[in-house]
Amino acid sequence: MTFSQLLSEFFTIVASLLLAPLLLGWVTQLRAWLQNRSGPGIFQPYRILHKLFNKDSVMADTASSLFRFTPYLIFGCMLLASAIVPTLSTDFPLAQAADAIALVGLFALARIFISLAAMDVGTAFGTLGARREMFVGFLAEPALLMVLFTSSLIAHSTSLKTIVTTQIDRPFAIYPSLVFAGFAFILIFLAENARIPVDNPSTHLELTMIHEALILEYSGRHLALLEWASSLKLFAYSSIGIALFLPWGISTQGSIMSLLYALPIFILKLLVFGVVLALIETFSAKMRIFRVPEFLTIAFLLAVIGMLTYILLGAKAS
């Protein structure tokens, strides 16, 4: 483990912490513009975080220590997730610690804890949210795994680092299986980050909400941590999308200069990603919660077909 590796890890973590709320703000702002509203500005998430951190935290009498501990854990998981996806460089120490499967496991860990915490207080909304969140998760999680596996099959590795480096290093080639994986990934992205059409992050409508129901009992600094964690999750998912489908520009050596080159390219890609997300959200309508399993099953099966296409197109008659 060299100094430059550590430095690149540190750089990535700081970049994700700072960029994550900005990405959220950018998407919100774009949506406002697309809907002919003036919008709150892209720094709004920072202001919200600042406000929440300074407020007193109110906690239910019935809440146990699990409830209190969970926001920190969720924040930690999401931060680690952003730290193990190659965003700026592929040369960093945590790349060995966790591969694509562990990444999905990390998201699952966070999901299970947030659901448990929501059940802890014992209100009707919390348990409802926990049920829905786990329900979305049980289809989205394997779908994400399948998307990652489609790339793993191409790179012959589940290590995210190897997936990205093989993609960058070899001569340009079109992989049809990635078309399926890409579509599946967009669907999973929308579901996992509580975006329209699966969930609407800006309403508290009890019939349809998923993510908001989970964190209804949190306030003050705990809520701030959870909000930050959810923007980190959005960021981590965007980074996964970039690493799998548009990795060009990620630095494959750990030098500081290459990091500084990689950063603007990465930010540019994030901006474009934000535009795509805002467009999708503006053009689609929130669907009924009963349609969500269908939506996710389609994502899951598309990812499976992606893996299948890779094997099929490579198959030779015996």
Binding site: A173, I174, P176, V179, F180, L301, L302, I305, T309, L313
Partner: peptide, 16 residues
């Protein structure tokens, strides 16, 4: 070849 394969997959995707 890759392009043809790509279009083939598009076709399959559209069929689904």
């Amino acid at each position: 070849i890759q392009l043809i394969n790509l279009f083939a997959s598009f076709l399959l995707l559209l069929a689904f």
